[in-house]
């Protein structure tokens, strides 16, 4: 029981200082899980990282893996809930006031003014992912095919993604 409370407290603290998305989290979790509390060996940490990249959802699901090692299924649940608690509370607070603040002209103009910057960030994510995963001609063929299908048809992205995964498995390239 004490272990679970400690787990909750540690992950709550991580959730509170978790600024800037998943890739900031990796060194932070590594320090806490491997060096400080010895909940994971380095190999387990790296394998856990690989697992959370294999699965859908945010990279922060690494918390579930770590929690599982430290305290079984209950540990996984506690780690997941507490790491996401701070950001969810913050988001709820912002979203609840959003409608009201948006009626203030200055805020509305500011928010609308940053829309192009957000577009730039979305495009940058595509670029960064491309840099690490587009190597062969076949990768580019899949990219173009995926883009065309998703841009011009209403086919669910799920089928396109799963289909591409099957292509990857079958052809082993």
């Amino acid at each position: 029981m004490a272990g679970i409370v400690k787990l909750a407290w540690v992950f709550l603290k991580i959730g509170l200082i978790f600024f800037g998305g998943g890739y900031v989290l990796i060194p932070l979790l590594h320090r806490i899980m491997v060096d400080q509390f010895h909940w994971l060996t380095l190999k387990e940490f790296l394998d856990g990282l690989a697992l959370s990249q294999l699965t859908p959802g945010p990279l922060a699901m690494l918390a579930t893996f770590t929690g599982y090692k430290a305290g079984g299924l209950a540990g996984a649940l506690v780690a997941t809930v507490f790491i996401f608690l701070p950001c969810t509370v913050l988001m709820l607070a912002i979203s609840n006031r959003y409608e009201k603040f948006r009626n203030i002209d200055l805020i509305k103009n500011t928010l609308d003014g940053i829309l192009p910057a957000i577009v730039g960030l979305v495009a940058a994510a595509a670029y960064s992912l491309g840099k690490t995963s587009l190597f062969t001609a076949r990768d580019f063929v899949l990219l173009v095919a995926g883009f065309l299908i998703l841009q011009f048809t209403r086919v669910s992205p799920m089928f396109v993604i799963l289909g591409a995964g099957a292509v990857g498995l079958v052809f082993h390239f």
Binding site: L129, S133, D139, L150, V160, I161, A164, G168
Partner: peptide, 15 residues
Amino acid sequence: SALRGTNPVIIGLIL
């Protein structure tokens, strides 16, 4: 190897 196939399509989705 499955991920090698999905990543290009995911880039397409983001694009």
